[in-house]
């Protein structure tokens, strides 16, 4: 499976990273190199092997339903590039 430039652009858009035409060409070859490298996994017979989802053999711990967090809006917006009246501000989103 090889990536073409259109795919690079599509993926960059999905990842919300602006790429220049020049970068697209470079990325095309770099990403294909990496994909070629990982291609060797197809040699491995994984029939009937469950995918590993976590390195710890544990199940999800569940926490009690108590309110013990929040209540510090000032800290939430403290590092925001743009905020007002406790809100984060972003360029207008049109639905």
């Amino acid at each position: 499976m090889a990536i073409d430039q259109a795919t690079v652009r599509k993926v960059a858009n999905l990842a919300r990273i602006r790429v220049s035409d020049e970068q697209v060409a470079n990325l095309e070859s770099e990403l294909n190199q990496i994909l070629q490298f990982v291609e060797q996994l197809s040699e491995v017979d994984t029939d009937g092997v469950a995918p590993l989802t976590s390195a710890v053999e544990m199940t999800q711990p569940l926490r009690a339903d108590v309110i013990n967090d929040g209540g510090y809006a000032d800290q939430i917006v403290k590092n925001a590039p743009a905020s007002d009246d406790g809100f984060f501000l972003v360029p207008k989103v049109i639905e």
Binding site: L41, T46, L52
Partner: peptide, 13 residues
């Protein structure tokens, strides 16, 4: 890719 790699990971473990 992803699922295959995680299966391989099971084998590694």
């Amino acid at each position: 890719y992803y699922k295959k790699a995680q299966r391989v990971r099971t084998l590694i473990k």
